[in-house]
Write a protein that binds this DNA or RNA. Structure first.
Lengths: 215, 215
DNA sequence: GTCAACTTTCTTGTATACAATATTAAGGTG
DNA sequence: CACCTTAATATTGTATACAAGAAAGTTGAC
């Protein structure tokens, strides 16, 4: 059980930032937030430090902390980085996966398939997340795994959007099968390259979406 | 100019942690630090939040924050991750480097060479850092660049140790040349694999060192 | 001497008070 | 009316005060 109010607040604020509740450049007013959470400024300030340190906000001395929502360019960079990190996880996982890991991954993949058959994008979304997390874990490098999870979480909201593209679910699914196959064969390079493009496509789709909104 | 005392303190503490001033599991006493830095507990606490968020320390509610020095296993994981991230930077850089980048990299490489001829390991160490940073930059992905810089900084102290191995400087140097060659050719796969093993070797050397200390 | 219950002291977490700097408003000048 | 100067106001940063839980010390029973 968590006793620190500051940590709870940090988590809440993080969620609010991820869900796009705050606009880019918006100032986080300490007093307002203090009232909102029914606490004094102290825990608010500690929560803001957390946001700043994890890169979700920027601090200008004597002026306050401001939300930093990634723009299109930074988002593309993040997607590219995610694709590369996934590729690395896949490469390592291909060499180190146990039979148990393969089983778990196969099961996750089947649950994805079911979600598609039930036309349940929310469930697909969630099972898809698990599928990838199993690969992170199977890299057998908990430091790398943590980095991957962090970035996955950060891109959550944006990944969700691109799944709405027509036919994307089915395409994503067939990519999964290729990933699974490469990992079963222990083909490191193939696993890496398939995973890379699987995630990179998400970035592409997102890019398309951004472009279409500008029109 | 930085006005926030808390930020300065956070930076100081970070350096103290990196330089191994604190033992693993050591508690950071707020009152003691407050006296030491001649401030109240408030800025100390904000600085501690930063350490915790960036993973350098762990916070146990109602008990304090404790230093978390990476053990041998985690260090190897970090080196492996660094190797993979460097490989990714190299892969992207190979495809995106400008002539200017190549020039800068060649110059940095020459300065490394000079440092070796002058038998100046400190200078080699610093120029080597620059060499790698140019590659991060040339990946043309500032998000990835930031991640790479962060990890490079985190591993600084440990990388330094392995350079003391006999003949390591010269070996490192010849690896650099191979990296440069691959990048000049725009050979992405080769740049990635050479960089990967270049950094991985550092991990290996470090592993040897840890093992030798245990005897 | 060991262990347990209780008391005291210490430490963290939060609230409040104060100091210093930014921002805004007001007033005067050309 | 624009622009500069200056006063009022608001907001951040730090210090201090207080509340609550944890650690350490003490006493007493066996």
């Amino acid at each position: 059980m968590d006793i620190r109010r500051a940590d709870q607040i940090a988590a809440s604020l993080e969620q609010l930032v991820f869900s796009g509740e705050f606009r880019d450049g918006e100032r986080l007013d300490e007093l307002r937030l203090a009232e909102q959470f029914h606490v004094s400024r102290t825990p608010i300030r500690e929560a803001l430090q957390v946001l700043v340190t994890s890169g979700l906000a920027e601090q200008v001395p004597r002026r306050g902390v401001f939300i930093r929502q990634p723009g299109p360019v930074e988002l593309m960079e993040m997607f590219e980085t995610m694709a590369e990190i996934e590729a690395v996880c896949g490469r390592l996982a291909a060499m180190r996966m146990t039979d148990q890991d393969i089983e778990a991954l196969t099961a996750a993949n089947e649950r994805c398939q079911e979600a598609i058959q039930d036309s349940d994008p929310d469930r697909y979304y969630s099972e898809n997340e698990t599928f990838h997390q199993i690969i992170y874990r199977a890299s057998t490098n908990s430091f790398l795994e943590k980095q991957a999870l962090q970035l996955q979480n950060r891109l959550k909201a944006y990944r969700r959007i691109q799944l709405r593209f027509r036919g994307r679910l089915e395409q994503s699914m067939s990519e999964h099968s290729e990933v699974l196959l490469a990992l079963q064969e222990g083909n490191a390079d193939r696993a890496a390259s398939v995973l890379r493009s699987h995630v990179a496509i998400q970035g592409e789709k997102f890019h398309q979406l951004v472009a279409s909104l500008k029109r």
